[in-house]
C-alpha cells in the first residue's frame, strides 16, 4: 500500500514536485507520464527512499524494488549472479531461482554471460529479472522497456501485468502504447 500526501521537492531553485498527493493503492499498474524533467524519476526515488522530500508524508507498507533508468548491473558478475545477489536464499536455491527468472525474460542460455558481453536490451532484461526477483510489494519501473525489441517488450509487459494482479507496479514511461496496454491508472505530472 502506498499513499503520498503533500510531497514537495526542489533542487536548488528548481521546484520539481510541489504538493504532490496520490493514493496509489495496493495493486495494479500506475503509469506516471509527463515531460522530461517534470519529476517522474524523482518521485520514484522518493518512494524508494533514495531521495528525501522536503515536505509531505509517505505512507508505505511492504517491500520496494526499483528498476532504474540505467541498468546498474555489477559488471564483474554474470547475468545469473546479478539476479541471485539480491536474493536472501541458500546458494543452490538462489542459482535455481535466478535461472528461472532469466528464462522468464527470455535469457535462457545466457545465464553465465558476463554483463559487458550482453546487448543493451539483454541488460535491461537482466535488470528486470533482478527487480522482480525479490518479489516486491511495490515494483518501481523507470523506463523499463527502453531498448527492447517488440517480442521482448511484449514478454516483459505480460510479466508486469502478471505482477500487478497482486502487487503495485509504478511505471514511469514516455510511451503512449505502454500506457494504453498496461495502465490501470495514469498520473500525469
Amino acid at each position: 500500500m502506498l499513499k503520498l500526501t503533500g510531497i514537495s521537492k526542489s533542487f536548488g531553485e528548481k521546484k520539481v514536485l510541489e504538493n504532490f498527493s496520490y493514493d496509489f493503492g495496493e495493486k495494479g499498474v500506475v503509469c506516471i507520464s509527463g515531460a522530461s524533467g517534470c519529476g517522474k524519476t524523482t518521485l520514484l526515488r522518493i518512494i524508494s527512499g533514495l531521495e528525501k522530500s522536503q515536505s509531505g508524508d509517505i505512507l508505505l507498507s511492504g517491500t520496494v524494488s526499483f528498476m532504474f533508468q540505467e541498468d546498474r548491473l555489477l559488471p564483474w558478475l554474470s547475468a545469473w549472479e546479478n539476479v541471485a545477489c539480491v536474493l536472501n536464499k541458500k546458494s543452490a536455491e538462489r542459482k535455481a531461482r535466478a535461472f528461472e527468472l532469466l528464462k522468464l525474460v527470455g535469457l535462457e542460455g545466457n545465464e553465465n554471460e558476463q554483463i559487458p558481453n550482453l546487448s543493451g536490451g539483454m541488460k535491461r532484461r537482466v535488470a528486470f529479472a533482478r527487480a522482480i526477483a525479490v518479489e516486491p510489494d511495490i515494483l518501481l519501473l523507470d523506463e523499463a522497456f527502453t531498448g527492447l525489441d517488440e517480442e521482448n517488450r511484449k514478454k516483459l509487459s505480460s510479466l508486469v501485468s502478471e505482477a500487478a494482479k497482486d502487487h503495485l507496479v509504478i511505471m514511469v514511461t514516455h510511451d503512449s502504447e505502454d500506457i494504453d496496454s498496461l495502465a490501470d491508472r495514469v498520473v500525469a505530472l
Binding site: 527512499g49 533514495l50 520496494v64 532504474f68 555489477l74 539480491v86
Partner: peptide
C-alpha cells in the same frame, strides 16, 4: 559508480 551504491541500498 554511485549508481551501484544506490542499487545496493534499494536491494
Amino acid at each position: 559508480d554511485k549508481g551501484l551504491i544506490e542499487m545496493a541500498k534499494v536491494y
